[in-house]
Design a protein around this nucleic acid. Structure first.
Length: 171
DNA sequence: TGGCTGATGCCCT
DNA sequence: GGGCATCAGCCAA
């Protein structure tokens, strides 16, 4: 329900901006794979590689709406007081899902046997009617680019922080 | 409700 | 060695 785009070029906020390193190698690999990185000494963040092999570009998953597995998520995140707080942040949702860099960085999400369940036993929900577009959260460079997208009026997003720079995509 | 801060370790200069 | 795509708890108002 909430993502941010990180581009391959002209986006200094992207980890891939300085080219291929041991950490960013996955971002330059084939699409549909998970790029999981460790941040602030405590948290992991999940990205989906989104460009053809050889090009950089990925999507940071910032919030999800839990449709299944609520009990196990509550066990992994006992600090969440309400269901809407289980996955409303990039560090929270990896905790709730048990996603770790050591286990899941580089794994292929396009196969049924993927260790990260992506619509494995479900039909996709209907597309959101309205998407809000804003600048990305928590970055200092390329901070004005409108690359954060979230479902309007969805209670599961991390911060309904719309600004003067926000806009809405319909349909 | 909103702002500040400590916790904590990888990554790249 | 400094910065970092974060979070939870604390405090003031």
């Amino acid at each position: 329900v909430e993502v941010e785009a990180y581009l391959g070029e002209n986006d200094l906020a992207a980890h891939s901006a300085r080219g291929i390193t041991p950490r960013t190698r996955v971002i330059f690999g084939p699409p549909g794979h998970a790029y999981v990185y460790f941040i602030y000494g405590m948290y992991e963040c999940l990205n989906l590689v989104a460009e053809p092999e050889g090009q950089a570009g990925c999507v940071l998953i910032r919030a999800l709406e839990p449709l299944d597995g609520l009990e196990s998520m509550r066990r992994r995140r006992p600090s969440a007081k309400r269901d809407v707080d289980l996955m409303n942040g990039p560090g929270k949702l990896t905790l709730a899902m048990g996603i770790r860099r050591a286990d899941h960085n580089g794994c292929d999400l396009t196969v049924k046997s993927s260790p990260i369940a992506v619509m494995r036993d479900r039909k996709a929900p209907p597309p959101a009617e309205e998407i809000v577009v804003t600048p990305r959260i928590g970055i200092n460079v390329s901070a004005d680019l409108p690359l954060r997208f979230f479902v309007r009026n969805c209670p599961y997003v991390s911060a309904i922080r719309t600004s003067a720079k926000s806009s809405v995509i319909k349909g």
